[in-house]
């Protein structure tokens, strides 16, 4: 018998597990980012970013994270292409039944997030890590990249903020379906707990992207 990932349901399992991992990662990312607007200096942000870049456990998690992104994207592409092939001729009248609205646009929102991810990784991760794009700063006697200053500098540029907000809205729409869909794919559907999962998903979908969006908005207003 062939391995689990040769089955459509096996590929979807990977997509959902990686999706949930990325959802958990976003909470950590947001927590660190929020120090930029809730702390007086960028020191806490820089210390956290430095910890994320140097701690061995986090480094292992980083590999998992990139692997997670990679598998989520690759399997998403494979499954989407199969879906397109499965209906070679479209209907004249599109289906208008009551369904999960954002699930119909998962591929579109994924493309928005994917483009943003490339820009985002280049602008911060690669630039700081490999291209010496960030200044150095000494905090508590330790030298580290001043990523906080880089973020604040970037968020003073209006078009950067607009791209960021559009991407975060795409992420919100993606997560609106993705959060509860991941649980269904894993097989967790329960008359009592599924409505709670959907409620949590909605709260996450609103609060996490909103938290991310607030940061450039506040920084832009403070510096203009």
């Amino acid at each position: 018998m062939s391995n689990i990932f040769s089955f459509s349901v096996g590929k979807k399992l990977i997509m959902s597990l990686m999706g949930l991992f990325l959802i958990a990662f976003l909470v950590v990312h947001l927590g660190i980012n929020l120090t930029l607007i809730f702390c007086d200096t960028t020191d806490n942000f820089n210390i956290a970013a430095n910890f994320m870049g140097t701690n061995i456990v986090v480094k292992v998690m980083e590999i998992t994270l990139f692997g997670g992104f990679f598998l989520h994207i690759i399997y998403g592409l494979i499954l989407s292409i199969q879906n397109m092939i499965a209906r070679p001729v479209n209907y004249k009248v599109a289906n208008n039944s009551q369904t999960s609205f954002f699930s119909k646009y998962m591929f579109h929102t994924a493309v928005i997030i994917g483009i943003f991810l490339v820009l985002h990784l280049f602008d911060f991760y690669i630039k700081a890590k490999f291209l010496h794009g960030a200044e150095s700063v000494i905090i508590n006697g330790e030298e580290m990249h001043d990523l906080g200053a880089l973020v604040i500098e970037r968020f003073q540029i209006l078009w950067v903020d607009i791209v960021y907000i559009v991407a975060l809205l795409g992420l919100a729409f993606h997560l609106h379906h993705g959060f509860q869909s991941a649980f269904q794919t894993i097989g967790l559907n329960h008359p009592v707990y599924t409505p709670i999962v959907k409620g949590l998903g909605l709260a996450y979908t609103i609060l996490v992207p909103l938290g991310f969006i607030l940061i450039p908005v506040i920084i832009y207003i403070q510096h203009s």
Binding site: S2, F7, S8, V9, K11, K12, L79, Q82, N83, I85, A86, R87, N95, S97, Q98, T99, S100, S103, K104, M106, H177, Q180, S181, Q184, T185
Partner: peptide
């Protein structure tokens, strides 16, 4: 499931149109 995949049906995205219809 193997036969369903082999026959070329698409993959479930938990949209819910099937349940609705």
């Amino acid at each position: 499931i193997a036969k369903m995949d082999e026959l070329g049906f698409g993959n479930c995205t938990n949209t819910g149109a099937c349940e609705a219809e």
